[in-house]
Structure formats: structure tokens, C-alpha cells
């Protein structure tokens, strides 16, 4: 058990889908097209009732900004054959040691959140490290500091929970029981679990 598990809180209910978090992260981590340490997934669905010339919409859409969740039971770590993936004792951050990783990509088959991203040029897999280098310098992670509506927060997950509440039980995200992710979402009005609206389409 990490001394003080760090994690994210994302306020989906105000997320613009602007993907600034994604690009700030790409810039910091030098990620080519095809690699996203933080991605913003578009979920949408619904339909219309057309009566005469009038249309009545029943439409929903929301964004899920998501990165690695530095899970309590990281399946990526369990499965990694080389031990390149470790969970830091002091803060529970899950990182991939680029000097150990051999680019087998098994972690990409293991993470329910598609967090590990293979880098063909380097022959290794990388992922969000919660910007620990910045945190250690007293600065916010790139994505957190980038968000135009201040929807992403970072901190000890217990504190975040106290401050914002939030849940991982978000419609269309995988069952958190699998890996016990350390992220919290304030769900968007349309992303509350159990809502029985039409099957949503998810796009990256």
C-alpha cells in the first residue's frame, strides 16, 4: 500500500472536450501521432422524434478525459514480463522504466483504460507517469495545468475524494473492480451509471 496514493479527479460535468490536456501531455512527453498518454473520448448517442416538420431531440454526449489511473491493482504491472512497470512506494504512481521495457506490448493488452502506448520509434512502451518530475518540483502535471476550465485535479486520492467526491462508476468505463483505479470522476449528467439510454458510440 502506497504511503500516500496520488491520483486524478476529473470534473466531466464541465469538460469541453477541447483536448488541450491531450496535447499538453503530448508536447511534454514528445509523443508522435498514435500515442496518447491522456486521451479524451467522445461518447454520444440518442435519437429524434420527428413529427411533421418538428424535431424533438433526445440526444446525449459527453467526454471522458482519461490517462493511466495508477491503479491499486495494476494489471499492467502484474502482467509485465520484465518488471519494467513498478508502483512507487511513496505515492503509488505506476511508471514504466524505459531502460527495462522491451516493447512486448503485453501491458497494452492488460490495461482496461488503454493507458500504455507503444512507441515504435523507441521500441518501448510509455504511459502517463503523473508527471512526477514536475510534482517533485512543486508543479502541477502538464494536463492539469493546461485545462482551460480547470476540470482536472491531481493530489492524494483520499483528499481528492474528500474535496470533490467522484466515482469511477462512469457509464461506458470498464468495471473498476478489475484494477481499482485511482481516478475520480464527477460524472457528466449523461454519464451516470444505470442510465438506460441507447447504446452510446465512443470515439477517440
Amino acid at each position: 500500500m502506497a504511503t500516500q496514493q496520488l491520483g486524478f479527479h476529473v470534473d466531466m460535468s464541465v469538460c469541453l472536450g477541447c483536448r488541450t490536456c491531450t496535447i499538453a501531455c503530448k508536447d511534454k512527453n514528445d509523443l508522435e501521432v498514435g500515442q496518447l498518454y491522456r486521451k479524451v473520448i467522445e461518447v454520444e448517442g440518442g435519437d429524434y422524434t420527428v413529427t411533421g416538420k418538428a424535431v424533438i431531440p433526445n440526444v446525449f454526449a459527453y467526454w471522458i478525459s482519461i490517462s493511466c489511473n495508477h491503479c491499486a491493482e495494476p494489471r499492467c504491472l502484474q502482467n509485465c514480463p520484465t518488471g519494467a512497470i513498478t508502483k512507487r512506494e511513496q505515492d503509488g504512481v505506476v511508471t514504466i522504466d524505459q531502460d527495462v521495457c522491451i516493447g512486448c506490448r503485453y501491458c497494452t493488452w492488460s490495461c482496461p483504460y488503454d493507458a500504455p502506448q507503444y512507441n515504435p520509434a523507441k521500441g518501448t512502451t510509455g504511459k502517463c507517469n503523473l508527471c512526477v518530475d514536475l510534482i517533485e518540483k512543486g508543479r502541477e502535471p502538464a494536463c492539469v495545468a493546461a485545462c482551460p476550465v480547470r476540470a482536472i485535479h491531481v493530489g492524494p486520492i483520499a483528499e481528492l475524494k474528500k474535496q470533490f467526491g467522484g466515482t469511477m462508476q462512469v457509464k461506458s468505463l470498464p468495471d473498476p473492480a478489475l484494477t481499482k483505479p485511482n481516478s475520480l470522476y464527477t460524472p457528466h449528467r449523461d454519464a451516470v451509471r444505470g442510465d438506460a439510454s441507447a447504446a452510446p458510440t465512443a470515439r477517440r
Binding site: 508536447d27 518530475d133 514536475l134 508543479r139 502541477e140 502538464a142 495545468a145
Partner: peptide
């Protein structure tokens, strides 16, 4: 409002390592 300055970390990032 909006959760500014909650983490106690300074917003604004430096990519440069220490």
C-alpha cells in the same frame, strides 16, 4: 470555484527536468 489552486502545486509546467 473551479478548484483553482487546490493541490498546492503551482500550475504551469516546465518540461525540463531538474
Amino acid at each position: 470555484s473551479g478548484g483553482l489552486e487546490l493541490s498546492g502545486l503551482r500550475s504551469g509546467t516546465a518540461r525540463a527536468a531538474a
